[in-house]
């Protein structure tokens, strides 16, 4: 099946494909992206409670956006999976809730810029994709469950509390705990890796 073929490609391959689509509308590269991402976006939408047909349509729409916006993809700023996730997230908010997802405008003169960071931070950013995955796998079940509910059930904290029969404060503090742990884990790993490479 095409999906299995696509899965032999690495994260770096996906970056090159996305850049190729952006630079010259490369159809072969786009096919690779489609085979990799469209089935996952479909699962994402189904998990959010949509019919398979709606999920298929939204996966298609996501890929149209990927094609149209590929030239704006900046590999220094985001991994392809994160970039596609944002597109799919915004489309499904628009489709399900008829709401938009307000976003900041990077070119807004009112935007307060971040301080310049040393160049090696970007390298760490890339490593952290895998580290993040690993750190998430190591979270306790109850904390991972909350992350899943946030990302895949479209549940506000109040709704999560109700579903799990927990006080709202517990949901919030558990989420905070999980996020703090992930951040610390990644920071520690980064120190460890940069220590090794010296």
């Amino acid at each position: 099946m095409a999906n299995d073929v696509a899965d032999v490609f690495s994260a770096d391959d996906l970056v090159h494909c996305l850049l190729a689509v952006g630079a010259r509308q490369d159809r072969l590269a786009f096919r690779v992206l489609f085979d990799h991402f469209a089935p996952r976006v479909k699962t994402y939408i189904v998990q959010l409670g949509c019919s398979h047909q709606q999920a298929e349509e939204l996966a298609q729409e996501t890929m149209v956006k990927v094609w149209n916006k590929a030239s704006q993809f900046d590999s220094e700023k985001a991994a392809p999976s994160t970039w596609v996730f944002r597109i799919a997230r915004n489309l499904r908010i628009d489709a399900f809730r008829r709401e938009s997802h307000p976003e900041l405008d990077q070119n807004d003169p009112s935007l307060l810029p971040a301080e310049e960071r040393p160049a090696d931070i970007t390298v760490e950013q890339k490593q952290s994709e895998q580290q993040l995955r690993k750190a998430m796998d190591e979270l306790p079940q109850e904390q991972m469950e909350l992350l899943h509910l946030s990302f895949f059930q479209d549940m506000a904290h109040g709704a999560i509390a109700e579903k799990l029969g927990l006080p709202l404060g517990t949901v919030k503090s558990r989420l905070r705990l999980a996020l703090g742990k992930l951040r610390k884990k990644i920071d520690d790993d980064q120190m460890y890796t940069s220590g090794l490479s010296e």
Partner: peptide
């Protein structure tokens, strides 16, 4: 950005569901 990376990472780990 970190949280969106989590979203990307979760998306990546989902079992693919074939399209038509």
């Amino acid at each position: 950005s970190e949280h969106e990376r989590m979203g990307g990472s979760l998306l990546e780990s989902l079992p693919p569901e074939a399209l038509t």
